[in-house]
Design a protein around this nucleic acid. Structure first.
Lengths: 116, 116
DNA sequence: CACCAACATTGACAAACGTCGATATCGTCG
DNA sequence: CGACGATATCGACGTTTGTCAATGTTGGTG
């Protein structure tokens, strides 16, 4: 299980029923695990949360570094993982890179976990 | 971030709003990350899925080892992580240990991810 | 009691991860 | 053009992870 070689999360989750409803295939389990792994870090959860809750629902790296308490390269690293996994989008305007939550991306993961 | 020192997932998720609704605290992000980390492995996703989909919604280690293609100690290891994280319960009957999905545990994680 | 089967625990090892400092890239402003 | 500011990439490091073989534990059975 590496964090490299993602499918965007919406592709991953278009595949199957909630995992508790019927036995998931090995391949789909691997894909879902990759998406979850991208989320399974405190810094990345906070990044998603901060981006979504930020003014205009977008934020640049400079908005995130200080409140997160991590260095700029580390923040860029985490953001890249979230972009590659399909949770965030990146838009460059001037010198700044603005990140946004991709609508529905978290929901498609949630849909696979839910049992009701 | 270690996989040891869990709170049961239902405690973790009783804490807060969906992460995209308002900025999550560092502590709650750490707890949610621990729960997600317990799920973020292909073998463990398949275990949850197989247990939930199994006859009578329970399964023993011997039911899981062979279809999963992993050794018995490895399967026990993964099951312990899922029990500690509050996703599975363990009941011993005779020589066998039966695992069940704890109702609502997956849903409480899903509730924190969902945005709609 | 002695043996066996199911499961848990331990110890070891390679692979992957999170973080950082240093450096590279790219757009802006003088 | 040259300097600067925001961000990305690289290389390195200590830590955590997933897996296995070997061993321990516990309950049933002869």
């Amino acid at each position: 299980m590496t964090l490299t070689g993602f499918l965007p999360v919406t592709d991953v989750t278009a595949c199957c029923n909630p995992i508790a409803r019927e036995a998931i295939s090995a391949g789909n389990a691997t894909n879902l695990a990759k998406s979850l792994r991208a989320l399974a870090d405190p810094a990345r959860i906070r990044l998603i949360s901060m981006v979504a809750a930020h003014e205009d629902a977008e934020a640049c790296v400079c908005d995130l570094t200080e409140p997160l308490g991590l260095g700029q390269p580390t923040v860029s690293h985490h953001l890249k993982i979230l972009v590659d996994a399909g949770f965030l989008s990146r838009t460059k305007r001037g010198t700044w890179a603005y990140y946004r939550l991709i609508p529905g991306s978290l929901d498609s993961v949630a849909r696979l976990l839910v049992t009701v």
